[in-house]
C-alpha cells in the first residue's frame, strides 16, 4: 500500500493543536483560522470524529475527543486509565464530599491529570495541600500515579474514616483498571 501524502496532514496537525486550548470551536471557525477550505475542514473533522479524536459539545462545537485526551494521558503512560479515572474520581468526590485529584510525576514536578472540586469550596481548595494521598501502583510495582483528596476541614473522625475507606476502594479500582486495561 502506498500513501498519497497531501497537505491534509498539516491541516490535521494544526486543527488538533488549535483544539488543545480547550475552547470549543465551530468547523467554520477552524477552517478560517487554519486557512483550510470549508469542504476540506468538514471532511477532516468527519474523519477525526469517527476516530474519536475530536467530538462535538452539546452546542455542536468541536472539542478534543476522548481518544485525544487518552493520547495525552499516554505521555505519562496512563492512556488506559483516563476513562475509569474520570468516573472514579467523580464518584469519590460525590460520596466523600472531598476534592479529588489524580497526579503523576513528570521529572521533578507533579502533573495534575484530573481534578474534581467538592461543592463546598470550588475555588478555595486549589492551593491547599492534600489531606490524604494514596499511591497508585502499576503491575510492575512502580508508582504510576497518586490519588489525592482534600477533605472538608471540619469533617468528623467518623466521616474521615468513611472517606478513607471510600478512597481505598477507589485506589484498588484504579489499580485494577490499570492492570485490566493493559491486559486488554
Amino acid at each position: 500500500m502506498s500513501v498519497r501524502f497531501t497537505t491534509g496532514v498539516g491541516g490535521l496537525a494544526r486543527v488538533l493543536a488549535r483544539l488543545v486550548d480547550g475552547t470549543p470551536r465551530s468547523v467554520a471557525e477552524l477552517a478560517r483560522t487554519e486557512r483550510l477550505s470549508r469542504s476540506s475542514a468538514f471532511d477532516l473533522v468527519r474523519r477525526l470524529q469517527a476516530a474519536e479524536l475530536v467530538e462535538r459539545d452539546p452546542a455542536g462545537k468541536l472539542i478534543a475527543g476522548p481518544r485525544l485526551i487518552a493520547l495525552a494521558f499516554g505521555r505519562f503512560g496512563l492512556a488506559r486509565l483516563r476513562g475509569p479515572a474520570e468516573a472514579l474520581l467523580a464518584w469519590l468526590r460525590d460520596h466523600g464530599d472531598a476534592a479529588t485529584s489524580l497526579t503523576c510525576a513528570d521529572g521533578e514536578e507533579r502533573v495534575k491529570l484530573l481534578s474534581f472540586a467538592a461543592d463546598w469550596a470550588r475555588p478555595a481548595v486549589k492551593d491547599r495541600p492534600a489531606t490524604l494521598t494514596y499511591p497508585i501502583f502499576a503491575e510492575n510495582g512502580r508508582e504510576a500515579a497518586r490519588l489525592e483528596l482534600i477533605c472538608r476541614h471540619n469533617c468528623s473522625r467518623a466521616e474521615r474514616a468513611e472517606i478513607e475507606s471510600l478512597a481505598l476502594r477507589v485506589k484498588a479500582s484504579l489499580e485494577h483498571y490499570l492492570r485490566e486495561e493493559a491486559a486488554a
Binding site: 488538533l16 493543536a17 488543545v20 486550548d21 480547550g22 472539542i63 478534543a64 485525544l68 485526551i69 493520547l71 495525552a72 494521558f73 499516554g74 505521555r75 474520570e86 513528570d106 502533573v111 495534575k112 491529570l113 484530573l114 481534578s115 474534581f116 472540586a117 470550588r122
Partner: peptide, 18 residues
C-alpha cells in the same frame, strides 16, 4: 511517544471538566 502538547491538552481537559 506523545509530545509536549499533551500537557496543555490535559490542563484544558481539566478546565473543561470544571
Amino acid at each position: 511517544r506523545v509530545g509536549p502538547l499533551a500537557e496543555a491538552l490535559i490542563a484544558a481537559n481539566a478546565q473543561a471538566i470544571a
